[in-house]
């Protein structure tokens, strides 16, 4: 429990220079290995001595994992590409601006320079009981400290809780779900690709992880298909401090409007549930409807159906209703 903020626990530092070498090392060390990308989340855990891996596999020397490759099929972004590179990339700004918008409001410029896309989607939850080293469910204990009458749960989930009420904190995740991105995972057994929304898991399935990666798995790239290139995008993030902060909520959508009607749409929200949440009921309900205020109103109301607020996060319900409404109907112009 005691949190030491002095030196990190001892581990072997492994620095592979290829994906093949990295997967071999990960396979060899199994659950004892910790993958490090930009280190922003990793160092929190290590310096606080809450996670104590035997080996640290540092991905920073693997060139294959870096960079953005544009093709007629879409864009492939290496897992080690920094958030700044993505935010500044002209092809992404032009055709997939929902992603550049999302990553450009992540934390601060310094963090975006160092933080990677792979790390951003694979980062752990920010629940402070857990990060403070309290032995809650997610840390392997048998209680949730946040979901109690006096628990500090202002930032926590209104959907999808199952014993753990923590939320997924990523800004890039809902944008990637809206773009129907595919996550490429490599392990000693080979390569597999999963849909963005299936990369994330809730506590009902595994209370100790936020994603499907198991020991030996490495996220190598994220592929964005051309299918949504140039669509009408929306990304909005609400946070306590606009200088830099984790989202209290964000909503991302990709929409195609033909003759005033929504012909297809994908919409997702983060920081509302333990996994970034695709709003399928909203997508189904608004398809074929005009992209106007009344459809937005209906979509907002639909989005919050079934929400279960905790003691201190009831505000998330009107917040979500309004963000979803704005995603469909557009934000009113500032006076």
């Amino acid at each position: 429990m005691a949190v030491f903020r002095d030196v990190m626990p001892a581990f072997d530092l492994l620095q592979p220079d290829s994906v093949a070498e990295a997967t071999r090392l990960l396979d060899q060390n199994g659950a004892g290995a910790w993958i490090m990308a930009g280190g922003l989340d990793s160092f929190d855990w290590l310096k606080d001595r809450i996670k104590k891996p035997q080996v640290l596999v540092d991905l920073s020397g693997i060139g294959e994992l870096k960079g953005i490759r544009v093709s007629s099929d879409g864009v492939e972004i290496g897992a080690m590409t920094t958030l700044t590179e993505i935010a500044d990339h002209p092809a992404i700004q032009k055709n997939y601006s929902v992603l550049s918008d999302a990553v450009s409001v992540v934390a601060s410029p310094q963090i975006r320079n160092q933080g990677t896309l792979g790390g951003n989607v694979s980062q752990d939850t920010r629940c402070w009981y857990y990060r403070g080293g309290w032995p809650c469910y997610r840390a392997g204990g048998n209680i949730c400290y946040a979901d109690t009458p006096v628990g500090r749960n202002r930032e926590h989930a209104i959907f999808g809780a199952d014993r753990c009420v923590a939320v997924h904190p990523s800004d890039s995740a809902p944008a990637l779900i809206a773009l129907d991105a595919k996550f490429v995972i490599r392990s000693a057994k080979g390569e597999r690709t999963v849909d963005a929304e299936d990369y994330f898991i809730g506590p009902d399935v595994d209370i100790t992880r936020l994603n499907i990666l198991g020991p030996g798995d490495l996220l190598t790239a994220i592929r964005i298909p051309a299918a949504w290139s140039g669509a009408k995008f929306y990304f909005e993030k609400i946070r306590d401090r606009n200088v830099w902060d984790f989202p209290l909520m964000n909503v991302a959508s990709a929409m195609e409007v033909n003759g005033g009607s929504i012909s297809r749409i994908r919409i997702a929200a983060s920081a509302v549930a333990p996994r970034p949440m695709r709003l399928r009921n909203v997508e189904d309900a608004v398809t074929g409807k005009p992209a106007n205020a009344s459809t937005g109103e209906m979509a907002g109301n639909l989005a919050v159906q079934g929400a279960v607020p905790l003691q201190f996060n009831g505000y998330k319900i009107p917040l979500m209703r309004n963000l979803v409404k704005r995603a469909i109907a557009g934000a009113p112009e500032a006076a």
Binding site: M1, W134, P135, A139, G140, G141, N142, Y145
Partner: peptide, 16 residues
């Protein structure tokens, strides 16, 4: 038994 240290510093059992 798996033990944990609770927020009050008490060593308590958590699971088998």
């Amino acid at each position: 038994i798996q033990w944990v240290t609770d927020p009050w510093g008490q060593h308590v059992p958590a699971h088998i």
